[in-house]
Amino acid sequence: MVELRNVSKTYPNGTVALRDINLKLDKGEFVFLVGPSGSGKSTLVKLLLKEEEATEGEVYVNGYDVTSMTRQEIPYLRRSLGVVFQDFRLLPNKTVYENVAFAMIITEALPKEIRRQVPMALALVGLSRKANMYPHQLSGGEQQRVALARALVNNPALLIADEPTGNLDPETSWEIMKLLSEINHRGTTVIVATHEKSIVDAMKKRVVAINKGVIVRDQEKGLYRDEDKNTPVFY
């Protein structure tokens, strides 16, 4: 599904963001990517989207050889995966329905298909009743759910969420995480970059910890920090 082989990334200003990363994700996995700010997890997400180029090594996503991909192929890579960001990135002058439908319009999907898929995606995130509202009329959690619906509407095999709960209060964050977990149960591979310690600890999923550009830990049913192993987890 996703594989990074000996990947390094040095920015033009000399900052080394990633150093010899090897990572493999199988189909249907749910992986937390954790680490402090500046650890390199955002860079890793950018490499998967080919927003940045790896300086060394190879990146494979959804069967695409991202490293050798030409500029013209990038849109097709991005269509094959759903992405959710901390700042939602919705179109302010389009309704909830239009925002979600837009992801299908750009793929030149059939109108019939759009009319079928969009309500399904909105139902999945529980926003069917707010389809005709504009983003500014919604709460942060609802906006993020719209972004999720948009990410899912084309049925991607992989969902990448970069700090999806960074702008949300704890309770709403939980709702979003539960939704991500549910999406994963339906068969979508999910990568979540986050530093929400309590959520990571409670969900008991695979945790890949990055620090200073290096993978320091890769653990099934992991916790945010190693030393937290013995502290009680409430859930």
Partner: peptide, 16 residues
């Protein structure tokens, strides 16, 4: 420009 960057993220081609 914000709209254009969003379009790029969700996989719109350059010509689109």
């Amino acid at each position: 420009r914000k709209e254009i960057s969003i379009m790029k993220y969700i996989g719109a081609t350059d010509w689109f």
